[in-house]
Each structure stands twice: as C-alpha cells, then as structure tokens.
Amino acid sequence: MKVKLVYFAWVRERIDKPEEDLDLPDSVVTAGDLLQHLKTLGDGYEAALQYPEVIRVAVNQEHVDHDEPIAGAREIGIFPPMTGG
C-alpha cells in the first residue's frame, strides 16, 4: 500500500523530514503495526518511535487508536501528544 506519511514536532525532527511517500508491506495492518514497521527503517525512526505508546496517529486527518486498521489511508500523520491552546 502506497501512502503519504507526515511528521510533526519532535517526531519530525528525529526522523529529519517533514513527509515522505512509502510503500508499506502487507504485514502492516493497524496504526500500531505501522509504528513498529517505521522503527526498523533507521536510527532516526528508532529515536522518534522509541516509546510508540505515546505516539499519536491520524488517518486522513482524523485521530485513530493504535489497534485501528489503516487500510484506505491516503495520508497518515504521526506526532507526539499535542500541546496547543
């Protein structure tokens, strides 16, 4: 599955890019699977996703839980807990 990934805040800084297009293996089914897959792509990813339980995932600009499937996603956002307001 081809998908656009967008990163924000310290996730973006550690991965060292704001976005990228990736072709995901079929074994990646849920948002949690995606985080585990990304962790294997290099030191920056490993540093960004060291504690995947704190990372938030959005599919097509809507929050999803880690156990939700990402099938049909065009854009997946990956970022730390939000601190606006």
Partner: peptide, 28 residues
Amino acid sequence: VMDFLKTAAPFWKKEHLQDGSAGGWVSA
C-alpha cells in the same frame, strides 16, 4: 472547546530560551 483543543487539536509548542538555546518541546 479549550479542554479538547489542548488535548486533541494538532498543535505543538517549542520553547525558545533567553540564553539563546533552542529549548525543548513542551510536554503534554
């Protein structure tokens, strides 16, 4: 609106410090 905006709207704050250092990202 404020309680949900702070915890669910995708914004992040980074500190810039008086001593010129970049500081860090504000923790939730």
